[in-house]
Design a protein around this nucleic acid. Structure first.
Lengths: 334, 334
DNA sequence: TTGTATGCGTTATCAT
DNA sequence: ATGATAACGCATACAA
């Protein structure tokens, strides 16, 4: 059924070695024979078998992109935007992208020798054992904040500084009671966000001693409606909210609105990452910008270098964030 | 470096055949030897090589998921939501998902015998030659409206009826001048939407003879700001707008707002597909719902059956749509 | 129950 | 410049 190098060889009246040579562009084949071979390949509609080639060359030509499991993953524009960058980066290479969204897929994929390298979105602490990952012996690059002890190169936004900037921006606009809506602490991203929040509060002497952070169980807002409502209504003096992601911010805005609060009149909201849709919203979401596709491209570049045998230093590539003022934040009188 | 079936055999003092048998769970191996082999596999940390297995079994274990090229693809929640369903469906199987977002990747992927089947998001007419696709000889399922002459099974929303329902809903709320913001006609999706639009207009005797459809060059709104502005401002009597996708609707709302129109007071807007974020917006977007993850799952199921050698009838699996009334539509007095 | 041998499609080594 | 052949890791028909 499927036409192989052997069929081409027979049809062209040459050995498979010669066919292989023209396929891989290796020297050592006469112009005339090459032409003949090419013609036959065309006629027979020959297609190389990547699996067979991989077998002898000891590589698959595939890169695994591992996104966290959970209901909202791909739907979260953070991931899709970074993945966009990964895809663009991968385009310059010979590699294909094998994606996996669930833990079942992930184990299957990684344990089957079906990829040459891994791009790993920073998993929750409960998802992967670092030891298991290391044991795989595959070149790996992590995207997003990750445990300090990780031996893998890491490309990430400067989450802590981003949240710090968001708080600072609200402060400069007259806000004095500023809350943080954060993800679960099992995610390093949340840990970093909290770090930045505390840092800003301390510098601005805003630390009231009260706990104004809400830690959600999930990054999924829909599942956390009640706790957000409670958080908001129990803090009437709070005029500004910083969220650990734009996605969280969108959900928070919705909930606040249904509670009768208008944005930004009653409550200012700042997101994080400045996902593409943020600027399309009404009102447009103030956020802390970072080059998401750039992160994806850089992660790809790094992995490719790793694959080529390079040693990568420094291990941490941190992308700067910068506050973008839009319509969900307002100046308030003191 | 990498441990193979051969190493296991030697270490366990058996033949590779026996090892292969326990791996594939085939009968014909004594309990004692099986135990010994398993232990050695464990000790040596043996991992099967999918490529090698594929070579002999003539299959790769990979499914290609082809999404249209272009700037806004993964970022478009339509795709990510359907893909979510695909991933869930694929979880029940032994297949991995190989994604490709660019034409370069796509050719590479499809021409290399590195996948067993294809899930294809309905491409623009200029993107793929049907003949080329058929020539691949791979089991293929299309998601979304596609050319009639396609020989591939197709899973899709009932776009025409969806838009029809949206127009109908606006009509019932008192609207008499209703526009359509549509994608390019090179996409069958747009063609179907237009079809539903005309159908509704005719039934409701609303066809004014004027052309109230705006055909965008791209599904990307940001690039079409000017034409949308012009469209809106040149039709002051228009009170309702139906959009060919939620994404388009979000962009349209933003542009209308910056023009000083408030939604839904001055302009009612209805999206299509009811993407997850639609209900999270403020105001929440009225839309035409369809089970997007269900479409993904069904496409996967269909492809798996195709892969198993089944013949699939009917070729078209159409998912119903139904209007969801939220906050971007209002009743108007006659 | 267990082992031997062959072949899957390709690259690479070594002759010629 | 060209060809024969081993090897990659695995499944399987056939022998024992």
């Amino acid at each position: 059924m499927t036409v192989s190098i052997k069929d081409v060889a027979r049809e062209a009246g040459v050995s498979i070695a010669s066919v292989s040579r023209v396929i891989s562009g290796k020297p050592g084949v006469g112009a005339a024979t090459e032409a003949r071979i090419r013609k036959v390949m065309e006629d027979l509609n020959y297609r190389p078998n990547l699996g067979a080639r991989g077998l002898v060359k000891q590589q698959t030509g595939n890169i695994a992109v591992i996104v966290p499991r959970g209901s909202f993953t791909l739907n979260n524009p953070f991931f899709s935007t970074v993945i966009d960058g990964i895809a663009k980066g991968m385009d310059q290479t010979e590699y294909n992208i094998v994606m996996s969204f669930t833990s079942i897929q992930q184990k299957k994929l990684l344990e089957n020798q079906s990829v040459d390298g891994i791009i790993l979105f920073s998993p929750r602490s409960e998802e992967f054992q670092l030891e298991w990952l290391e044991n795989l012996g595959l070149p790996t690059v992590v995207i997003g904040s990750y445990v300090e002890s990780s031996p893998f190169p890491c490309v990430r936004p400067d989450d802590a500084d981003g949240i710090d900037q968001a708080v600072q921006a609200l402060y400069e606009r007259g806000h004095r009671h500023i809350g943080l809506i954060n993800g679960p602490m099992s995610s390093m991203h949340s840990v970093k966000c909290l770090e930045g929040y505390h840092q800003a509060l301390q510098r601005l002497a805003l630390d009231s001693g009260s706990n104004d952070m809400l830690e959600l169980d999930e990054f999924d807002v829909a599942a956390s409606q009640e706790s957000i409502e409670a958080f908001l209504s129990s803090r009437p003096s709070m005029t500004g909210i910083v969220c650990a992601s734009d996605y969280l911010a969108i959900g928070t805005m919705r909930i606040a609105t249904t509670m009768g609060l208008s944005i930004p009149e009653d409550l200012s909201v700042v997101g994080a990452d400045d996902v593409p849709i943020a600027s399309q919203l009404t009102p447009a979401l103030s956020s802390v910008r970072v080059d998401l596709p750039g992160i994806g491209r850089e992660a790809t570049r790094t992995l490719i270098r790793l694959l080529a045998g390079e040693r990568i230093e420094p291990k941490n590539l941190v992308f700067p964030m910068s506050y973008v003022d839009r319509e969900t934040t307002r100046n308030i009188e003191q």
